[in-house]
Amino acid sequence: MGRKVLPIALAFSAVSSAPAFAGAPTFSDARSLAMGGVGVTAARPAASGFFNPALLAVKQPEKRNGFGMVLPSVNVIANDEDELRDVVDDFEDDFITPFETAIDTLEANIGGAGQAAAQADLADKTQALNNKLA
């Protein structure tokens, strides 16, 4: 029974770990990310364990500093296809700023002759903001 279990366990572990290596390569340093993922052939000796351990056997005197350490890094790729930042800026310019200005105008005219006009202006700006948010 023991002879049959070991090959089955090895086959299962090989099959279950295969998807982990099937994805796109992950780049662990900014240099290889900037170079389009060429770390397999051009990794620095300190990072070669992540890309191609065989590079450790190649003499690379021009890249050797005597010491190498790869610190954890975080890589982020962002794309704003719908130009959300511009939409938010336009919304602020068209609705938020006039609403805040109407509030300031009303506060400045409380108890004065322009209070009724400032209240009407604030009501209009509030309605426009509510309609846009809806």
Score class of each variant (00 low, 15 high):
Met1Gly: 11
Lys4His: 04
Lys4Leu: 10
Leu6Glu: 05
Leu6Pro: 00
Pro7Val: 07
Phe12Ala: 11
Ala14Ile: 12
Ser17His: 02
Ser17Ala: 07
Pro19Asp: 15
Phe21Val: 14
Ala22Met: 12
Ala24Glu: 04
Thr26Arg: 09
Thr26Leu: 13
Arg31Leu: 05
Arg31Thr: 13
Ser32Asn: 13
Leu33Asn: 01
Ala34Asp: 06
Met35Leu: 07
Gly36Leu: 01
Gly36Gln: 03
Gly36Glu: 07
Gly39Ile: 06
Thr41Met: 11
Pro45Leu: 09
Pro45Phe: 05
Ser48Asn: 02
Ser48Pro: 05
Gly49Lys: 02
Phe50Gly: 00
Phe51Arg: 06
Asn52Arg: 10
Pro53Arg: 02
Ala54Cys: 04
Lys59Gln: 03
Pro61Asn: 12
Pro61Phe: 13
Glu62Asn: 09
Phe67Pro: 02
Phe67Gln: 05
Val70Leu: 00
Pro72Val: 00
Ser73Met: 07
Val74Gly: 05
Asn75Asp: 12
Asn79Lys: 00
Asp80Val: 01
Glu83Cys: 05
Glu83Ser: 14
Arg85Cys: 09
Val87Trp: 01
Val88Gln: 06
Asp89Asn: 15
Asp89Ser: 10
Phe91Ile: 08
Glu92Lys: 11
Phe99Gln: 10
Glu100Tyr: 03
Thr101Leu: 08
Thr101Asp: 04
Ala102Arg: 04
Ala102Lys: 09
Ile103Leu: 07
Thr105Ile: 00
Leu106Asp: 07
Ala108Val: 09
Ala108Phe: 10
Ile110Pro: 02
Gly111Cys: 13
Gly112Met: 09
Gly112Thr: 14
Gly112Trp: 12
Ala116Gln: 15
Ala118Trp: 12
Gln119Met: 14
Asp121Pro: 14
Leu122Ser: 14
Lys125Ile: 01
Lys125Leu: 00
Gln127Ser: 07
Ala128Trp: 04
Ala128Ser: 05
Asn131Thr: 14
Lys132Ala: 13
Lys132Met: 11
Ala134Met: 07
